[in-house]
Simulated scan of single mutants.
Amino acid sequence: MKNVVEIATDHPHAALPHLWQATFSPPPLADPDDPHKIIRTHLKKDEIGKSSGTCRVAFLTRLHRRAAFQEFWCASFEEAQVYTNIAGHPDVINFKEQLTKVPFYDEDGRKTFTRVDAHALLRDGEEVLVSVKYDNKARRQSYIREVKNIATQTPIEVADRFAVTSRYVFHPNYRACAEAIHKARRGWDPEADKTMADLAQDLGEGFSFQEIVDASGLEHRAHRAVIRLVGDGDIRKDLLDPFSPTTELWSAAA
């Protein structure tokens, strides 16, 4: 996440919670007999938003190749784009929208609270709160200072750090890869996924995208499976490399 999200501040505490102490669990698994069944997220609202002028967008995806389809609600197009990028990161195993409420004292000493746009659970058990703003505000020093104030008052039991982001903080190549990952996750092909995961380990420390696809003999099924495995972190690449025939890959288990 640090490579693609502008960090407002690190949490002052150094210790990270273990995964089993996380405030929420990994996403629900899909039913193999009905893998395309859609589960609505924790909000379960017909309408959301902070004002009547808010754009309401539904974001539908799997957070892992074996996870259930979930429908996330977004209060704006900006949120939908950021959620797409967060959910496509190989180190993010789950996130919740509008889940976490953080009480704090503002710069004038008044007690108030904020409900954070996204709460991400990372593979190492770290939890990150994400404030989503349009690009100019996300980069505005006065707003970053405001978030730093909230971050220093956020208990370690709630999250490890706070980030401020917009869709433009993510590199264009990264955004394109995230879109490809979500598109590949719409499919359901556990057999191809397992074949490609096993083959990645057999190929050694490095191989190109085209080499592993050709070695499998699965053609388009292999192509989609490799993208899913990259999205899940089982096959790795540089975050900013595109999905192209010459892209260098390696197995996370190697």
Rank of each mutant, 00 (worst) to 15 (best):
G109R: 14
F162V: 13
D124P: 15
R123D: 05
G49M: 04
F69V: 06
V82W: 01
S131W: 08
P90H: 10
P155T: 15
E157H: 13
Y168T: 11
A120I: 06
Y174G: 03
I144H: 01
P32M: 07
Y174D: 06
V128Q: 01
V102I: 12
H42M: 11
K50N: 08
L63G: 00
K44R: 12
L129H: 00
G53H: 12
R140D: 12
A75V: 06
V92D: 05
W73C: 06
E78G: 09
L129E: 03
K50S: 08
T61W: 03
C74A: 13
D34C: 07
L63M: 04
L121P: 09
Q98G: 03
T41Q: 10
E79F: 00
Q98H: 10
V92A: 06
A138K: 00
K133A: 09
F69T: 09
F170T: 04
D46F: 07
C55V: 12
D33L: 13
H42A: 14
K148A: 06
R40W: 10
A118R: 01
R40D: 12
R140M: 15
N94P: 12
H119P: 00
A87G: 08
R140A: 15
P35E: 10
H89N: 08
E146H: 06
V102D: 02
Y105L: 11
P35R: 04
Y83P: 05
L129K: 07
F162G: 03
L122P: 09
D117V: 02
E71H: 03
R110A: 12
P172G: 07
